[in-house]
Design a protein around this nucleic acid. Sequence first.
DNA 1: TTAACCATGTAAACCGTTACATGATTCG
DNA 2: CGAATCATGTAACGGTTTACATGGTTAA
Lengths: 212, 212
Amino acid sequence: MTYVNVLHMACGTRERNPMTTLEYKLLGMLARQPMSGYDLVSHLKQPFVPFGPISHTQIYPALASLERKGLVRYHIVEQQAVRPDKKVYELTEEGRTALRQWAESPTPLVFSYDEFFLKAYSLWLADPERMIERFREQAQLHQEKLALYEQVLQSKQLAINAGSEQADVFEERDVLFQYVIGYEQNYLAWCQSVLQYLEQRKHQHSQEGKQV
Amino acid sequence: MTYVNVLHMACGTRERNPMTTLEYKLLGMLARQPMSGYDLVSHLKQPFVPFGPISHTQIYPALASLERKGLVRYHIVEQQAVRPDKKVYELTEEGRTALRQWAESPTPLVFSYDEFFLKAYSLWLADPERMIERFREQAQLHQEKLALYEQVLQSKQLAINAGSEQADVFEERDVLFQYVIGYEQNYLAWCQSVLQYLEQRKHQHSQEGKQV
DNA sequence: TTAACCATGTAAACCGTTACATGATTCG
DNA sequence: CGAATCATGTAACGGTTTACATGGTTAA
């Protein structure tokens, strides 16, 4: 064991723990609008927030960690009745800088596929009938999601015409919608083309059955 | 040490731990071809295996767990020189059944986005110049991946024409390629459309700058 | 001589999910 | 009367990553 590699940590305490993806997601949302932990959870359920579901049990410790790092601060909002007070978090200047630097940094391509695609890898040993069923099911689900996205996008564009918020943020958002809509379209088209193939093969097999 | 494995352990112990996605990935690969843990790791680096990278430290315990469940068995292949013996794993009948049942089961839609897309969510506070750089970079990476997929697909189709392996498995594989190629095409198209938008806006801003 | 290849594993640290905990209010 | 909503958290568990461990061969 040779070099101890001091360097790099130069300043005493600095940041003990590096940032996680989760923390950047939270920063990303808080940068647009100050919110409490609970608000973040409900916000994540909206169809136009592109981060998956995150449970509150992860969010509260993460917010505390961001605060320790000086990237967010909160002020307490008292609630009516006996409810616990709300802690509304917002970014500090350091937080905004950290988020911008992260967004501006290069990203390597690491691909992860969805579970249905993984199953498709072992499709060849499945029962054809049941597989057709599953692909129909999947096509249905993606179609619904696509319809939802298109609907939200439409109502969002109406809001732009009404001039209710800053056009800048909205324009950027449409960029995100472009992607997810394209994604769903591709998935749907794939399901349909596989269905076509499977059903064609089914008919071939049944005819072969008659001949034999 | 002959294996003890008391016939599924009837009711008493049954399966302590449920199957993980990782274990199904391994089953999926082993169903196509018997392999050792090391082989699995190298196989995962091939561009036509659609599971992400899996480290060997996960694979070895997972294989042991699959064996305890009676879904795989192995035979030892001695290596030349001092190298440790290879354990070549293959599916048992129970393993094949478990994999088929998993592949045939319904899959809920749970969406997860890639890291670059997450960054795009906070694009609005990034420096436009640097963002253009990153989108170019990303477009490049996806273009390369697309070219790779198309190349592999082509050489695979040549292999079919030469009749080297069962057509059935190959046909199913092309189904997977259809998807990943579509995916990359969509991503690339998205990057390019965003680039167009960003560059257009850049020129507008520089003209405004001249006027002011 | 350093790195990469072959081949297997264990141990600790880290991240995410599930279960537990509280407690008033409102809707079906 | 049970379930959902608001609002915050801790503790245990399980899956993943990174570091540690071994050890001979081959190519840059």
